[in-house]
Simulated scan of single mutants.
Amino acid sequence: MPSDAHGGEHSGALGEADGLVPNGVTVFDDTIPAVAKLDPDLLQALRRAASAAEHDGVTFYVNSGWRSKAYQNQLLRQAVATYGSANEAARWVATAATSPHVTGDAVDLGRSDATAWLSRHGADYGLCQIYRNEAWHYELRTSAIARGCPPMYADPTEDPRMQQ
């Protein structure tokens, strides 16, 4: 299947153009598609929070951000192989049709100091952990700035967005 400009299925090895993230990438690395293709509002909130966190000696490293459909499908296939069933894999990896990573609406941050910082301060920037089982996964919830983050789902299988 040929590659398309919108991140559809293709054959061959996946790379940075599909959303793979090299080591050491931060939320300020505009040359990396996984960062550059994040929703602009999410990216702006991440960068504001990261700038504040730097004052506490914390750097926001990106493990995953935007992903192509092909990359998301590969992650799902790997999760099914790892966890033994599609149902169990769904606790960790969404389909390409439902993943907020494919739309650029989610980021997975590396290093526990960044996620610990966000667990304390993320709501001030509208950045919320969505799933209890994924301390690294953050999405933008602008209402959190005034009201705090919404209650977390135990895992993606409880998220109505994943039921499509």
Rank of each mutant, 00 (worst) to 15 (best):
1 M>L: 11
2 P>F: 02
2 P>L: 06
3 S>K: 12
5 A>D: 12
5 A>F: 07
7 G>Q: 09
10 H>E: 01
10 H>D: 06
12 G>T: 01
14 L>R: 10
15 G>R: 04
15 G>M: 03
16 E>C: 11
16 E>W: 13
17 A>G: 04
17 A>P: 01
18 D>H: 07
18 D>L: 09
19 G>Y: 01
20 L>F: 10
21 V>A: 06
22 P>D: 09
22 P>L: 06
23 N>M: 05
27 V>P: 01
31 T>M: 04
32 I>A: 05
32 I>K: 04
32 I>E: 08
33 P>N: 07
33 P>C: 10
37 K>D: 05
37 K>M: 13
42 L>K: 01
43 L>Y: 01
45 A>L: 05
45 A>R: 12
46 L>N: 08
47 R>K: 14
51 S>P: 00
52 A>Q: 15
53 A>K: 08
54 E>G: 12
56 D>M: 05
56 D>R: 05
57 G>L: 14
60 F>L: 11
61 Y>K: 13
61 Y>F: 15
63 N>I: 06
65 G>E: 02
65 G>T: 03
66 W>H: 11
66 W>Y: 11
68 S>H: 10
70 A>R: 15
72 Q>H: 04
74 Q>V: 00
76 L>Q: 09
84 G>I: 13
84 G>D: 13
85 S>D: 14
85 S>P: 12
85 S>A: 12
85 S>Y: 15
85 S>T: 14
86 A>F: 05
88 E>N: 11
90 A>Q: 12
91 R>W: 07
91 R>M: 13
91 R>G: 12
91 R>Q: 15
95 T>R: 14
96 A>T: 03
102 V>Y: 02
104 G>N: 08
104 G>L: 06
105 D>M: 06
106 A>P: 01
107 V>Y: 10
108 D>N: 13
109 L>W: 07
110 G>Q: 08
114 A>H: 00
115 T>S: 09
115 T>Q: 07
115 T>N: 12
120 R>Y: 00
120 R>W: 00
121 H>K: 01
122 G>A: 11
123 A>C: 03
123 A>M: 02
125 Y>A: 04
125 Y>D: 06
125 Y>T: 01
125 Y>N: 02
126 G>T: 03
127 L>R: 03
128 C>E: 02
129 Q>A: 10
129 Q>M: 08
130 I>Q: 15
130 I>M: 13
131 Y>C: 08
132 R>M: 04
133 N>T: 15
138 Y>Q: 04
138 Y>D: 00
139 E>K: 03
140 L>E: 08
141 R>L: 02
142 T>S: 10
143 S>Q: 06
143 S>C: 02
147 R>E: 11
147 R>Y: 12
147 R>H: 15
150 P>L: 05
150 P>I: 02
150 P>A: 10
151 P>L: 14
152 M>W: 05
153 Y>S: 09
154 A>P: 05
154 A>M: 03
156 P>Y: 08
158 E>D: 13
158 E>I: 00
158 E>N: 04
161 R>I: 00
161 R>W: 11
161 R>F: 03
162 M>K: 00
163 Q>S: 14
